[in-house]
Amino acid sequence: MTVHLANVRKAALAAALFLGPAAAYAANPVGNAEAHDFSIHINLIGLTSLDVASQTSASLVDVVDSAADSDQLPSISISDPLNLMSLNSGELIAETEYVGNAVSAIAAQSTVADLDLSVATALLDVLSLGSGVIRSTTTMSGYCPAAASNAPRSLLGDFVFGYGFDQGNLNGGGDPGGGLGGGLGGLPPGGVDLIDPSVTILGIPVPGLPTNPPPNTSIDLSALGIAGVTLVLNEQTRTGDGVHSLTLATNGIHLGLNVAGLVTGDVIVAHSEVGMACP
């Protein structure tokens, strides 16, 4: 699913209307967001390495008022000193945006176009990773409720009846049953879009890669006879209780390498991350 950051404002407005004027909120949540394209560290036969940090990045740090940041490059071309490994791409875009309101919203998006990552020796093509587009989008919305009422508090009250908690304040927050039901606001879920993804390891192509992988899609490479490699699409992690604070992070592609000592490394492409916390 492609989520454009311009839709954040529309979603926040719709969420506020759904929430209704009767809901009480204390203050805008504190928002943080980050997006960047690459984190690549590859070592080949102990002779040479390719280390690529983010080429484009956008971030928002501890914002409470509407703000945005973006970064863009038309293309890049990077190789190791021995020209055995190369990274080429087309356009790179990193975007973050926060809208502070009765229901606030925050989003981050990283887009990598025309990716071509290659690792090869004179005798063997070790790794090829490519895609027309790799895009990760992470979004969140919510509000900080007003101070809890003066209802009597007790151990059972906190854990059974939820005094002092508001299940509607952060999208993706917990519910009384311990699930991840979401809040009253809510943006469309983020996720990962892949256009024409391709991965070849030790000359063996990985077939059937999905273009809109569900969260934490792990590709079983052992069935292809490939050992020492992990491949996760739409890798998602979350921290926080989902009610008073929540952080969501997405990696478009995460590749871990330890191929018979020939090549070791870690490759992350298209990272987006957002967080909200009530002050």
Rank of each mutant, 00 (worst) to 15 (best):
D80M: 00
D80G: 04
L82T: 06
L82Q: 14
L82I: 00
N83S: 01
M85V: 08
N88I: 10
N88W: 08
E97V: 10
N101A: 15
A102P: 06
S104E: 05
I106W: 01
A107W: 12
A108C: 04
Q109M: 11
Q109E: 08
T111D: 03
A113F: 06
A113H: 08
D114L: 09
D114Q: 04
L115D: 02
D116Y: 01
V119K: 02
A120R: 02
T121V: 05
T121K: 02
L123S: 15
L123A: 15
L124V: 14
L124Y: 13
D125H: 10
V126N: 10
V126S: 10
L127H: 04
L129H: 08
L129C: 11
S131P: 05
S131T: 09
S131L: 06
G132R: 02
I134Q: 08
I134A: 06
R135A: 12
T137G: 00
M140W: 03
S141L: 15
S141Y: 13
S141K: 01
G142F: 07
Y143T: 14
Y143E: 01
C144R: 10
P145E: 09
A146S: 12
A147C: 07
A148V: 12
A148W: 07
N150P: 06
N150I: 14
R153W: 14
R153V: 15
S154W: 12
L156A: 14
D158N: 13
D158R: 13
F159K: 15
F161G: 13
G162K: 11
G162F: 11
Y163P: 13
Y163R: 12
G164H: 01
G164Q: 05
G164M: 00
F165C: 11
F165K: 14
F165V: 14
N169F: 00
N171P: 10
G172K: 04
G172C: 10
G173P: 00
P176K: 10
G177A: 11
G178L: 02
G182K: 09
G186P: 06
P188G: 03
P189V: 03
I195G: 03
D196W: 03
D196H: 03
P197C: 04
P197Y: 10
P197V: 03
S198M: 07
S198H: 09
V199G: 05
V199L: 12
T200M: 11
T200C: 07
T200L: 15
T200Y: 03
